[in-house]
Amino acid sequence: MSDLTAATLEYATRLGDDALVLGHRISEWCSNGPFLEEDLALSNVALDYIGRARMYYTYAAELAGGGKTEDDFAYTRDAREFRNLLIHELPRGDFAYTMVRQLLVDVFNLLYLEALTQSADANLAAIAHKAIKETRYHLRRSKEWVLRLGDGTAESHKRTQRAVDALWGYTHELFEIDALEQSLAEVGIGVNNTGLRPAWLAQVSAILSEATLTVPKDDWAVRGGRVGYHTENLGHLLTELQFLHRAYPGLKW
């Protein structure tokens, strides 16, 4: 396998990990939503993410060869091998927390996928073209909810601000790049995410201000997802996600 193929395989796996872990988190709302329509909406968003993970993993499996499938990536790797950014694995929290995370991630994804549609890798570009259309719908909804909750009752405002404050330190990692991603960005395959922060911050700040929320100071940051250092939460999530496959390897539905 050439270095470029190996790097692309790792990159597709990372993006698949981001999508799978967040998709699983959102799916935890299924049957726990605050009301029926919201339960359906969250389940649908979760499905979009899991579908996205399948596309990235299927491509990674194709690059890996040797008969690997998407399931090998989702079900047989341990927490230390997952490369998702940490913001995706944090527990779902209350509804305000879930919607604030969606807003922060949706604005980021829109910018990121826009850039990825230009990828020199036809498969990654095709996945981005597909995913970005769904992300536009996700963002419309998360934005509406953050406005409604932030500018809602004293209680909803308090919880939404608490979520913004708790999540803010995890957003810095979204804009960090390592040598592998740098090398792919240089050949036009990967996205140089370091340049996306000004646009992200401008959009997020405008929405938070309109929602009467305060944009936190940048005085703390947590990182490590891309090298496999995770919070304790990922292991718990994988325990549930991988249980069936670990207990009955190769089981078919």
């Binding site: 329509e37 919201e38 359906l40 909406a41 649908n44 968003v45 499905l47 979009d48 769904e134 719908y137 419309r140 909804r141």
Partner: peptide, 13 residues
């Protein structure tokens, strides 16, 4: 409109 997402991802309610 009641919800941006209906019985499936492709529909609104």
């Amino acid at each position: 409109r009641i919800s941006e997402f209906g019985s499936t991802a492709c529909k609104a309610l």
